[in-house]
């Protein structure tokens, strides 16, 4: 029995090492370049522009899919932001907490010939520069990003129901974000598209991506997971107000 526990403990340690090892290969850093507040009739829109940087921090280059969405030119070449959250420390508390979060809408399954063509092009022994970009160890890949947050100004009917939209955000803004210290923003990006994998009834293991990851080992590490940025300091006092707005 003791032996089994020991083996289990070793497995857990190894698993932890694997995860942290993978995380150390790539970092996502961000810097806010502008914040704009737009006062609307029923809401306050906060638009944040950022300079984001993927930084290869491991010993091997990191390979990223070039986001060559076959149909939607608005998405093409753009990393897809999937999730954002604002952290802060309230005067009454000793620890930071999540004050706001937002899940973005995602594209639906298209499974068109365009996607098949991309898969065919990717499924090659040689790295296809039309589909994959490489970040050498110690180098960065920069991109511009924009995130918007909407805060409702008043409670609508049923606003105590947290699942009905994002009703609590007005309260969060007025009562929490306003008084919180050390505000920071953390954003998540999707790097590998679900459209490149089959959507099975079991948890998606990204078999196509894993196959390429193994095949292209000599070129670097193909990044498949969503990536969460490092916390980005957020100073709302630097915001430009588009119309009269009281934060």
């Amino acid at each position: 029995m003791k032996k089994i526990y020991m083996i289990l403990a070793v497995c857990i340690i190894l698993l932890g090492f694997q995860v942290s090892k993978a995380d150390e290969r790539l970092k996502l850093l961000g810097k806010i370049t502008s914040i704009q507040l737009e006062n609307k009739e029923d809401s306050l829109l906060v638009s944040i522009r950022l300079k984001m940087s993927f930084q290869a921090t491991g010993n091997v280059p990191v390979l990223l899919w070039k986001q060559t969405y076959p149909h939607d030119e608005n998405l093409r070449g753009r990393f897809l932001g999937t999730f954002s959250k604002i952290f802060g420390m309230l005067p009454t508390e000793k620890e930071e907490k999540i004050l706001y979060y937002h899940s973005s809408r995602l594209p639906s399954i298209q499974r068109t010939q365009g996607w098949q063509d991309i898969k065919k092009e990717l499924d090659s022994e040689i790295l296809q520069s039309t589909q994959i970009q490489s970040i050498k160890s110690g180098e960065t890949l920069d991109f511009d990003a924009e995130w918007s947050f909407i805060f409702l100004k008043k409670k609508a009917n049923g606003s105590n129901d947290p699942l009905w939209g994002y009703s609590s955000h007005f309260d969060v803004l007025s009562n929490e974000i306003k008084t919180a210290k050390n505000l920071s923003l953390q954003v998540t990006y999707r790097v590998w598209s679900s459209e490149l994998e089959l959507h099975s009834d079991r948890k998606d293991k990204k078999p196509f991506g894993k196959k390429l990851q193994k095949r292209w080992k000599k070129y670097g590490y193909l990044w498949l997971d969503d990536i969460v940025s490092e916390p980005i300091p957020l100073d709302l006092s630097s915001a430009v107000v588009k119309t009269e707005s009281k934060l």
Binding site: S103, L106, L163, W164, E195
Partner: peptide
């Protein structure tokens, strides 16, 4: 469900 692997939501 808002997109592949997206949120389940009402509105």
């Amino acid at each position: 469900r808002s997109g592949v692997g997206g949120r389940f939501e009402t509105g």
